[in-house]
């Protein structure tokens, strides 16, 4: 087996919750990321999916050391990034880049496209001349003459391409893509998806693709990790996950995605979850999903339920890289 390029182990991130008033005492913690471990291999896309507030964006930011980790390690090519200072991180930033969700907020409106893309090159002292920028623009499917314009002159899809060009400028090995498509219309989304796939093939990039959209993730990811309330509840090769999801949360998630196919939609089985995601300040004991779990509510006996409440399920291997954190996991075919 080849070595992973990024290896995350037992990553924890807590944000303090402070009281109001002068003292601002620490009254609790938001358990944003809790004991998360995963690997990203070279030339591979790992999809990190989950609903809002599940900690997927925080995981991406902690991975890049944009937020300090509370505990755990992030090894990039064998080196732990967590203890590194900003200055120590700087040379590594060339190899680890991020594309942000909102292409309207992540581009400085007062810089031309050329300046935007040249900025990381200037910081790292590798800016030589404009042909570099023109090449990058062409790589992401824009024209060289677009370089003299400002971000507001572009559509959402074009802006996201500028964001990708900027992230690619330093020839990174790993790209964290944080919901790069969610601000775009569907017809434009497809172009950016194709671009990301082509770039990966050409440049041998590794992606951490963070998204709430399972359809896109199935399309782009080789492996998928599903997060719920700060924990990874299931991880598997993409096709396997969608074919035989074994965690009740993944099953509910997959069954809830509408398919653009009327005949299939009419006959599909839906698992409707009750209630809402609990607060990450006081997550449920044991399995964090049990408060909404349809299996816990309808199929388990009382002693079995006690186990869900007392014992935190850990990721258990089901073979072929398919791991599930559920005491009573059972594969289901939903599509």
């Amino acid at each position: 087996m080849t070595e992973p390029i990024v290896s995350v182990r037992n990553l924890v991130k807590h944000f303090p919750v402070r009281s109001r008033g002068v003292l601002r005492r620490r009254t609790g913690d938001v358990h944003a990321v809790c004991d998360v471990s995963f690997d990203i291999f070279a030339h591979e896309t790992l999809g990190l999916v989950g609903e809002s507030g599940c900690g997927k964006t925080t995981t991406g930011r902690v991975l890049l050391n944009l937020e300090p980790a509370t505990a755990g390690s992030v090894h990039y090519r064998g080196r732990d990034l967590v203890p590194l200072s900003r200055a120590q991180m700087r040379p590594l930033r060339k190899e680890l880049q991020i594309v942000f969700q909102d292409p309207y907020a992540s581009l400085d409106p007062r810089m031309t496209v050329t300046e935007l893309i040249a900025e990381p090159l200037r910081i790292h002292g590798t800016f030589h001349d404009r042909t570099q920028i023109h090449d990058l623009l062409r790589t992401v499917g824009l024209d060289a003459e677009h370089g003299n314009r400002y971000a507001h002159e572009f559509s959402g899809g074009q802006r996201q391409r500028i964001g990708v060009a900027r992230a690619l400028a330093l020839r990174p090995k790993v790209l964290v893509l944080d919901e790069p498509l969610s601000a775009l219309d569907v017809s434009v989304q497809a172009g950016v998806v194709n671009l990301l796939e082509d770039l990966q093939d050409e440049l041998g990039l590794s992606y951490l693709f963070i998204s709430h959209d399972l359809s896109v993730v199935r399309h782009i990811a080789d492996r998928v990790a599903v997060m719920y309330l700060g924990r990874i509840v299931e991880t598997a090769p993409a096709d396997q996950l969608f074919r035989e999801a074994a965690h009740p949360y993944t099953q509910a998630l997959i069954s809830a995605i509408p398919v653009p196919d009327p005949r299939k939609e009419r006959t599909r089985r839906r698992i409707i979850l009750s209630g809402d995601v609990p607060s990450p300040i006081t997550p449920p004991t044991g399995c964090r999903f049990r408060t909404r779990c349809p299996k816990y509510a309808t199929q388990l006996t009382d002693p079995e339920r006690r186990r869900c409440a007392e014992e935190t399920p850990t990721l258990t291997d089901r073979g072929q890289g398919h791991q599930t954190a559920c005491h009573y996991a059972e594969a289901l075919t939903l599509i």
Binding site: S155, G157, V186, S187, V188, Q189, A190, G191, V193, N194, E197, L214, S215, V216, R218, H219, I220, A238, D239, F242, R243, I254, I257, V259, P260, D261, K264, I335
Partner: peptide, 24 residues
């Protein structure tokens, strides 16, 4: 036709190319 072709689908595996509509 273009809208339908540009949708990634959860019920289809693999990396078939999506067919984006160019322009805005």
């Amino acid at each position: 036709l273009g809208l339908l072709g540009s949708l990634p689908r959860i019920d289809e595996s693999g990396r078939q190319r999506l067919t984006p509509i160019t322009g805005a």
